[in-house]
């Protein structure tokens, strides 16, 4: 045990033990008594109690052992925290990862002629570049939107339900939008007819470029709010 002698602190250097340490030291002394009287028949315990009685007689020994215990807990805590710390740091990466914005966010969807003149909504895939962790895909579908002509002007609505993100269907029989997950019902302009959706279907900004090209600023929004908040 003399290996520990060098860390024997003078009493002023003993840090204040926190309650856990105290508690554990208390357990310790409780147990020592229990061990010595419960297992008094086993040879091991006999030796133990000898040790204990002889060591306890030394004056400042109890205090030193308290410090050793304190150190054990501190060191144990530090070394165990390292792998967790590294792991959690890496795990939290998505919170700090910045989404790379490419250009103005507008994506070319189709041409004017592809949208029915009678105002029927038509679904179009959004083909764009996508960054997915280590991959960067060029020209793959990243989502879908509904395009519809209203008084000759083109309107765009997101296909994702503002409630909890299911895919909203267009029902041609009833000529309306319907989310099958929790029965939310929308008019053709996206406003709520019935159901649990907290807000109307999300409109997307549109630009007509080169006279006939339909470009849409494609974004996804957080579900559940009463107004659209872009996901970033």
């Amino acid at each position: 045990m003399d290996n520990n002698e060098d860390i024997n602190p003078d009493s002023s250097a003993v840090p204040e033990q926190d309650s856990v340490v105290e508690a554990i030291s208390n357990i310790d002394s409780d147990i020592v008594q229990e061990v010595s009287d419960e297992n008094a028949t086993s040879p091991v315990a006999c030796r133990l109690s000898e040790v204990e009685t002889s060591t306890e007689s030394e004056e400042d020994f109890g205090e030193r052992r308290g410090f050793v215990k304190f150190l054990c807990i501190v060191i144990g805590g530090i070394v165990s925290a390292v792998p967790f710390g590294a792991g959690i740091w890496a795990y939290l990466n998505p919170l700090t990862r910045e989404k790379e914005g490419s250009g103005d966010g507008f994506v070319k969807i189709t041409t004017l002629d592809a949208i029915p003149a009678d105002g029927t909504p038509t679904k179009f895939s959004v083909i764009s570049d996508k960054e997915d962790a280590w991959n960067k895909f060029k020209n793959i579908s990243v989502g879908a939107i509904y395009l519809r002509k209203e008084d000759g002007k083109v309107k765009a609505l997101h296909t994702v339900c503002p409630h909890l993100g299911c895919f909203i269907d267009y029902r041609s029989i009833k000529n309306d939008f319907f989310c099958p997950c929790h029965n939310s019902n929308f008019k053709l302009d996206g406003s709520i007819v019935s159901g649990v959706s907290p807000r109307p279907m999300d409109p997307l900004k549109i630009e007509i470029r080169n006279k006939v090209e339909v470009w849409v600023k494609f974004q996804n929004f957080q579900p559940g709010h009463d107004h659209p908040i872009p996901l970033s």
Partner: peptide, 9 residues
């Protein structure tokens, strides 16, 4: 040397 417990030494 004398015996000792696992904890804390």
């Amino acid at each position: 040397k004398k015996d000792a417990f696992f904890w804390p030494d």
